[in-house]
Computed example of a mutant assay.
Amino acid sequence: MGSQQGDVEASLSTIRRLTDTDFAALAWTDEKNQTVHWRHASGNRNDRFKRIVMRPNKGVAGSVIRSGRPLILKSFTPKSGDDPQDYSILLAENLKSAIIVPLTINERVKGVLLVGCRHLRTFDEQSIELVIDFAEQMGAMIQYSIDHAPT
C-alpha cells in the first residue's frame, strides 16, 4: 500500500499543478462501515482532513457519490443555518472554489476527487475536463492495483 499511497499523493500534486489549484484530495468510501473518509491530500494546511468522516449521502463528497456527477463550486461561503458537516473539507482547508468529481472503480462510484482554491475562481471548461479525465485515470490506476494485488 505504501507505493500506491505515494503514487496517489504524487498524482494529487500533479493535478494541483496542472489546474493551478491550492488543494487536491481523494475521499474514499468504506462500505463496511458505511462512511466516507478523506484519505489522501496535497496542498493541505494541516491534517484535519484525515479526521473528517461522513455518511455517503452527506456533504459535498456524498452529493457527488450519490449523483455520480461532478459538482462545481464557484464561490463557497457558508451561510447561517448550514450544517458545517456538509462542508467540512471546504471549511477545514478554507476553500472558496472547488471541482468535485466522482471516482469510479469497477463501474461503481467509490469516492471523489476534489481540487480547490482558497480564493474565488470560476473554473473554465478545460480545467473541469482535465479534473474529470484525471479522476478516470486515478480510478483505473486504483482498479488495476486492486485487480493485481497479491493474494
Rank of each mutant, 00 (worst) to 15 (best):
F123W: 10
S67V: 04
M141I: 10
I15V: 13
V36D: 00
A92P: 13
T151V: 10
H37Q: 14
I99P: 04
K79N: 12
S75K: 13
L130A: 07
R16K: 07
I142Y: 14
A41I: 01
E31K: 11
S3Q: 11
M138T: 05
L73G: 10
Y87L: 00
E129A: 14
L130N: 11
P70W: 05
D82W: 03
S145L: 08
V131Y: 01
S11N: 12
A149D: 08
V101M: 02
K50E: 05
L73W: 05
F49D: 00
L103C: 07
D147W: 07
A27L: 03
R69H: 14
A61H: 06
T104P: 08
K50Y: 05
D47C: 09
I99F: 01
F76W: 01
L12V: 02
Q85D: 14
L95T: 03
R45C: 13
K110L: 07
S75H: 14
F76H: 00
S13N: 11
E31Q: 09
S67N: 08
T19V: 08
K58W: 11
M138R: 03
L26A: 04
M138Y: 01
L91C: 06
A10W: 10
P102C: 05
Q5E: 15
R16Q: 12
N57I: 15
T77C: 06
I72Y: 02
Q4R: 14
P102Y: 02
R39Q: 13
E136K: 11
F23W: 11
N94E: 14
G2F: 13
Q4K: 13
F23L: 08
K110I: 09
L103K: 04
S67A: 09
I65S: 04
I72M: 03
H148W: 06
S42D: 09
F123V: 10
I146D: 07
A27K: 06
S127W: 04
P84Q: 02
G2H: 11
M1K: 06
P70D: 06
L18I: 08
E9R: 04
S97N: 00
F23K: 09
Q137E: 09
Y87K: 03
K96F: 12
D147L: 15
M1N: 11
S3M: 12
P102D: 00
T14C: 07
L95Q: 00
I15R: 01
Q85C: 04
P70C: 04
E107W: 12
Y87P: 01
G116N: 01
V112T: 15
F123C: 09
G139K: 01
M54I: 08
G62L: 00
R118M: 04
T35I: 03
H119E: 09
A135C: 01
M138D: 01
D86V: 06
T19L: 05
H119Y: 11
I105R: 00
L95R: 04
R48S: 10
A27W: 03
